[in-house]
Write a protein that binds this DNA or RNA. Sequence first.
DNA 1: TGTTGCTCCCTTTTT
DNA 2: GGGAGCAACA
Length: 767
Amino acid sequence: MIEYEKLLNEAQYKAATMAEVPALIVAGAGSGKTRTIVYRLAWLIEHGVLPTQILLLTFTRKAAQEMMRRAGDLLPGGVAGLSGGTFHSFAYSVLRQYRPAWLEDRPFTVMDSADQLGVLKECKDALLLGKGDRAFPKTQAVIGLISKCRNKEMRLEELLKMEGPHLLAYEQDLQKLMDAYAEYKRDKAVLDYDDLLFELEALLMSEPGVARSLRAHYRAILVDEYQDTNLVQARLVRILSGIDEGEAGPVMVVGDEAQSIYSFRGATVSNILDFPHLFPGAAVVTLEQNYRSTRPILNVANCVLSHAAEGYRKRLFTERQDGEPVRLKQCISDKSQAEAVAKRIERLLETYPPDEIAVLFRSGYQSYQLEMQLNQRGVKYRKYGGLKYTEAAHVKDVIAYLKLVINPMDYPSFLRLAALFRGIGPKTSQRIYASLGAGDAKALARLRKKHAELFQELDFLNGIRGRLKSSPSTLVGEVVEQYDPLLKRLYPENYPKRRTDLDEVRSMAAGYGDLDLFLADLMLESPEEDEREQGRVVLSTIHSAKGLEWNAVLLIDLAENRFPTRYSLYRDDLYEEERRLMYVACTRARDVLELYAPASLFDRTSGGSMPAELSPFLQELDPSLVEQWSEGYGGRFAKRNVLGRGRAPGVGGFAAPAGTKRMAQAGRGEGSQLPAWDEDGRMPERSKPLAVDELQAVAGGDSADASGTPANEVFEDIAKGKISRCRHRMFGRGKILGVSGTDKIVADFPGYGVKTIVASYLLVEGK
DNA sequence: TGTTGCTCCCTTTTT
DNA sequence: GGGAGCAACA
């Protein structure tokens, strides 16, 4: 018997051992949530519930894996038999067993985002939409809109009014596209991610017998990260609970509205808030004591949240009194930030094991420079978020082969396969696919002659299909061998590395009994982590870091327009979500939290460095909560106040002395969201994008307004030698060497070397 | 007619 | 680095 009362605090104990009624556990960050869930599982099992009768659901794959891992560690019998995973993978497994009627007897496959892209492109072409219209939303954007519509369950018009009024003109076209896309999927028996959830709901509603047998099977349902569920997921929980059938509804959901970070895909906090209404008689337990982080870390996290527009009831507290201060480190540039962080990781490795150190960032690409630094230093890392392993071109190719084995009419995969051969483009693929579907023997014979290579490949796949009973790893191995000559042809430069990846895919298939299960897992659950990757430093997007924790967390790129992203600046709900993201990031740390802010960022559109303001989330911080450091010459950091100085007047934060010229912003094209200056020469607090005509007036150079002297005039002055010195916020005084392009100045800053800098961020001075 | 090659533009977060 | 659009080629 487990002594729950000794092992858990009062609130955790209550949550873990309550009777099997609907329950909402509001669990603050680091409050022992997973621990509580795991003890709940143990308690259920002690009280006669079999592990196979427990369903454990979460939204992200990472959270699902972490939960299963920890349950396995704590439960005496391990997780054997426990059903658990993401909503999507659960939906797939049910749909595979109880197939929707409209599929008839056709095999179906799941599409990933690349497949969606291909299908939508095709629909767009078929409908002749967006031809020659540059303003027509990009295919990727259309996919986003479609998915948002479905996840938020809004009509297209409503969504466009909220998210993109400028697209309202295309509403009808987009609607047509949406319909065509939906029809297409039905026709070809493919499901996208959203379909999995809606198809499951439709199935349960139309076939009460299926719902009944699932309910009879699952005696307990636990949902983690409930604040990240969307409407259809909440309905699924409700249906599965059986509360509408007068059953007790043995559902326990766990969540924290302060950590809601998935509203972009329809997650709604109201699922938590409405839970007691949807499940009358639900028990509510709140966990507030934080066991994870030191006091200084928690102070920073609480401070971040205290500026939230909506108030959060909870304030976390901890008994961990000790702890190093949270450090804020301002670096000269993003490049030097990468160096500083890499160096810091090497130091931390003297104290902590590698897998207890994590670097977190807002978007996948923000770790590129750091990755290069770590590679140079031989520090091994693994990366979460951003591009996935299964998204590498060669892995996608092999997956397309395998999908075609299961579902020969999987069109996205067919396109991918056909495009591998020379002389076959979209039209030819379409023709061949149509002939195959219609069984047009004459046309096929002709096509076969012309495109022998492709048909050889298709014959091979048909052969494999006849032997589906062989082990998946054997089948994958054969497919890889078949693909090998193409791999050599397509990627001569790094063939061996890619071949290793594919052998890896084969070994991953080893544990599976059915090829289609393996494929679905590859699409829906990240495959079992490569053993070589364990015990490494972690680089992760904050979204992917949800539910995880480390001894040391370094948070990078805390600069305006990076975090919060510039997309969030003009909508309060998005801005607030960014703040919660910051909160999630800070609360991942147990002992060490460091905040890195680059003072300038490389800007590829201009090819120069742009000064970067501190992230507003840093500017709001109480300066007494962090130890402030600033990078100086030679990469050395010195304690120096970075916060609380307010924004100095002048460009990029320093005063413009008399006799200096500030240049008007050079043209940056339509749609630029770079900040304009106000009349005092300050950057506005929350920069608004320039209106298009305003921008043209400034960029045109002939109508210099209050914002300064036109760039072309200053460039002329430089050419005439009237101007030879400049000042930059970070680099100080410099000597102008020349100009580059239409908007950049090359200057030598003593101690920093020669820099090419966008002119509008410099102050220039006469001789 | 259809494919391939070249250039310009934009780059969130997940299943 | 990839997608989309356009021009040149088979």
